[in-house]
Nucleic acid binder design. Structure first.
Length: 582
RNA sequence: GCGCCCGUAGCUCAGCAGGAUAGAGCACGGGAUUCCUAAUCCCGGGGUCACAGGUUCGAAUCCUGUCGGGCGCACCA
């Protein structure tokens, strides 16, 4: 069992004992009691705020209650020290075995050490990436993609039935623009001099092969024909080609979605009408005129009655249009239908990962989900801030218009999937992130990826040496190692870091913050490197001690546990641990 | 003008559900290698947690306001 949950249980049991003895009144909110490692190591190995929290409802002074609780806890044979500290903390020291036992858990459970069942098998839909199929993915997409994928991993690890989903915006004006751009490349492939790409079309070279493929399969029959004739074919073929390329880019990042949901298919199946009819029935829609937009004045704005959704009734700032003045559905209308589609597929928990430039869109979609589900479904939206791409400290401009787009694929090919994925999680998602192409490829301690990988590789190196000495090396062989031989403070600190893994996973999953995994791994690696180097100064602390086999086994057990947790954490963020570094 | 996010060491950032003397990396100064990979480690200086109020036993954390920065703000995607 998770060390800190174990402690929380013991503290609750002690409190219940005090209630039975009549020293505490019944009915106290014991669930709110917290046990955590104190920031200051001098305060002990674990601390609880129980007395601070319960003093008032119990009608006692916090310090008195803390003393009382400390005394009760001292009855536990594994509690070697329990002291009350002002203003009312109880600080604990546990028998070393209490911590060492976690190593046995790791060796027995492997990848499952740290798993908690928060989801209880309930479904959750995580939608991420969802870039428009009008070109290759760029680095900005990469961040949301890695974040979403790591979050999906984390939720799957914590008991949720996760569906990874990609929404394909294959309808609307940008697809027509794409088709026109491809038609131009098609003419070019058939020998026409097309000159510079006109303003408003996609200039990227990546459309050249799409035009060429159409020229080969279709011949010249779409030359000089009116646009409505070739538009459907060119749109379809262009989207297919772009999507294929995007999937390829995602695969290079190790990302695989379960569902690609097409906006066009949604629209053609009449789901938008159906969704809005449903909302109409609930009285959520009306026809009205919106006030002119605030901020920058819009020149050609004129008031026009539109079909609107009562978003203000669900916390949005203004009601939102579902139909354009042209009579077409808005993008928002399709998005409402899409999220209703998710709901009908059984998801009452949905998570969308978006770029920060879509922040203004959050409230209206959450309002829609709350409205059509009568509050039964929740939509969480995680925004990822921009990535500033640098090359040796100098900013690299990412401008689609200038055609100087730096693609995700370029970067992944250059630095590798593992480096890219790890680096994307070295910041909170809502903070901007600098990504320096030069820095991240350097194999030095400045580079957190290599720092963590190096720890893993060093452990594997020890096991290669162990193999030469014909020592047991598998978790199954090491699970019965005499762990009591681990006595050095640096060893026990490392054990406690391993013990902190389950609570890290739990917190990261509950807060939807996969970056916490990356930070934990750096911390665990640091503890390990410290112990390693101590072995250089104090030969007794080396891992393989020829004349003391039991001690060697205990240390191998510790190392295998650390390695397992490193590998598990890396797996959750989608990074492959390495055997050695060169 | 309005909304969302952010403001923590010289720089880049963590800070778990409010908890004790606010942490890490970089940079700077000093040290460690006959050794399982020095691609590492150890020691040190460095802070008005933007500012002002409020909530409470306790605030970097929650609430309100101010200042500063980023993103967004009809029909477009």
């Amino acid at each position: 069992m998770n060390a800190f949950d174990d402690l929380a249980d013991r503290i609750r049991a002690a409190l219940e004992g005090l209630v039975r003895d009549g020293r505490l009144p019944p009915g106290l909110p014991l669930d709110s009691v917290l046990v955590e490692p104190p920031r200051e190591a001098a305060h002990g190995e674990a601390a609880t705020n129980a007395a601070l929290l319960l003093a008032k409802p119990a009608g006692l002074r916090p310090l008195d209650l803390a003393r009382c609780l400390a005394e009760a806890l001292r009855a536990d044979p594994e509690v070697v020290e329990a002291t009350a500290a002002p203003p009312g903390f109880v600080n604990l020291r546990l028998a070393p075995d209490f911590w060492r036992r976690r190593l046995r858990d790791v060796l027995a459970l492997g990848f499952d050490y740290g798993r908690v069942d928060l989801g209880k098998g309930r479904p959750v839909d995580v939608e991420y990436c969802s870039a428009n199929p009008t070109g290759p993915l760029h680095v900005g997409h990469g961040r949301g993609t890695v974040f979403g994928d790591a979050l999906a991993n984390l939720l799957a690890y914590t008991g949720w039935k996760v569906t990874r989903e990609y929404y394909v915006n294959d309808a609307g004006a940008q697809i027509e623009t794409l088709a026109r751009s491809v038609h131009l490349r098609y003419r070019e492939a058939l020998g026409e001099a097309i000159g510079p790409i006109p303003e408003g079309l996609y200039p990227g070279e990546y459309l050249v092969p799409v035009g060429r493929a159409l020229a080969e399969s279709e011949g010249p029959r779409w030359l000089g024909r009116p646009e409505p004739e070739w538009m459907p074919l060119f749109a379809r073929r262009a989207v297919e080609a772009m999507l294929e390329r995007i999937k390829d880019d995602l695969a290079a990042l190790g990302v695989h979605h379960d569902v690609f949901r097409s906006e066009r298919a949604l629209v053609e199946a009449g789901e938008v009408e159906a969704a809005l009819a449903f909302m109409e029935q609930k009285g959520l829609l009306y026809t009205g005129t919106l006030p002119p937009p605030k901020g920058k004045p819009v020149e050609d704005w004129e008031p026009a009655p539109q079909l609107l959704f009562r978003a203000t009734a669900y916390g949005d700032d203004t009601d939102r249009p579902l139909k354009r003045s042209t009579g077409h559905w808005t993008y928002f209308a399709a998005d409402v239908a899409y999220h209703m589609d998710k709901w009908r597929r059984g998801f009452d928990r949905m998570i969308d990962v978006w770029g920060a430039d879509h922040a203004g869109y959050v409230k209206r979609l959450q309002a829609a989900v709350a409205a059509f589900s009568d509050g039964a479904a929740t939509l969480e939206i995680r925004l990822c801030q921009l990535v500033n791409l640098l090359d040796g400290g100098k900013p690299l401009k990412m401008s689609k218009r200038a055609g100087r787009i730096v693609t995700l694929r370029d970067v992944v090919d250059e630095v590798g999937k593992d480096v890219f994925r790890f680096m994307m999680l070295t910041r909170r998602n809502d903070a901007p992130l600098d990504f320096d192409l030069v820095e991240v490829t350097q194999q030095s301690k400045d580079n957190p990826v290599f720092y963590v990988q190096y720890a893993h590789a060093r452990i594997r190196s020890v096991f290669r040496h162990a193999a030469e000495q014909a020592l047991p090396r598998t978790a199954a062989e090491l699970v019965d190692a005499p762990l009591a031989r681990l006595e050095d403070p640096a060893e026990l600190a490392l054990v406690r870091a391993v013990a902190a893994w389950p609570r890290t996973v739990k917190a990261a999953a509950e807060q939807s913050e996969p970056h916490r995994i990356a930070f934990y791994l750096q911390d665990l690696a640091a503890q390990f490197h410290a112990l390693w180097t101590r072995g250089k100064e104090v030969p007794d602390l080396r891992f393989l001690v020829a004349e003391d086999r039991p001690l060697t086994l205990a240390r191998l057990a510790l190392l295998e546990a650390v390695r397992t947790v490193l590998a598990t954490g890396l797996a959750l963020i989608g990074v492959t641990p390495v055997e050695e570094l060169h």
